[in-house]
Structure formats: C-alpha cells, structure tokens
C-alpha cells in the first residue's frame, strides 16, 4: 500500500523498478529500498530466525538492528531496509545464517 494523497508531502509517480522476489518478477518504485518495495507489495516476512525459524520483518528501518536481513543477488545478511532497490535484483527470503561462498 502506498500513500496516494498527503497534506504535506508530495509523492510523484515514479519510474518502476523490476526485480525478482522469491522467484517471482515484481516491481517497486525508483528510490525505494528493498524493504519498502516489498512492504508496498504486502510482503512483511523477510526472513526466518536462525534457531526457532520464526518469521521476521523489519524493525528499525535505519540499519541498526539487522531484523530485515535477506539474500540479495546471492549474498546473505543484506540489510534490506537501507539497501536501495536496483533493476534486476534477485531478492530471496533468508533462512538460517546464510552462506557467503558455496564450497566447490
């Protein structure tokens, strides 16, 4: 859900930015962070907690708490609340601690 009318702020219609979320092609707006784009699409669960696999969303939205970690372009533990959305990004829900480099 996006704000359509606001008494003080002006949210002009922006360019669409297409990206992949859990394998689906979706889009956000230019200027979005990954987390804000997903939230606007109704996605609130971003990852699962490491031990108990409880759903996690964002909490602080300014990069302090790491509650919003996801796998972005194959890289785990990306703080999606402060990472700008880019065209063609591949974003996936993170389960577990994440693996930086697959063993070959």
């Amino acid at each position: 859900m996006r704000i359509e009318r606001h008494p003080i702020l002006n949210f002009d219609v922006k360019k669409k930015v297409f990206f992949t979320y859990n394998g689906k092609r979706v889009f956000g707006n230019e200027g979005d962070t990954i987390a804000s784009a997903l939230h606007a699409l109704g996605v609130r669960k971003l990852s699962e907690s490491i031990e108990k696999h409880r759903p996690r969303g964002f909490y602080c939205a300014i990069g302090n708490c790491a509650s919003c970690n996801m796998i972005v372009n194959g890289k785990p533990n990306v703080r999606t609340c402060v990472t700008k959305l880019e065209e063609g990004m591949v974003v996936a829900e993170q389960h577990g601690k994440g693996v930086l480099y697959e063993k070959s």
Partner: peptide
C-alpha cells in the same frame, strides 16, 4: 514481540514519510 508487523515508531515514520509506503491499515 518479533512478529512482522511490529515496528519501531521511527521505522514507521521512515517508511511513510521517506518512501511513501503505509505500515498497515
């Protein structure tokens, strides 16, 4: 207290006033 949908007040402010996205209904 860790359920998605539970947000800090500043986070809600950032989401709305910087990105124009609503935190919920």
């Amino acid at each position: 207290n860790d359920l998605p949908g539970i947000y800090g007040a500043g986070a809600v402010q950032t989401l709305m006033n910087v990105y124009g996205v609503l935190p919920g209904e």
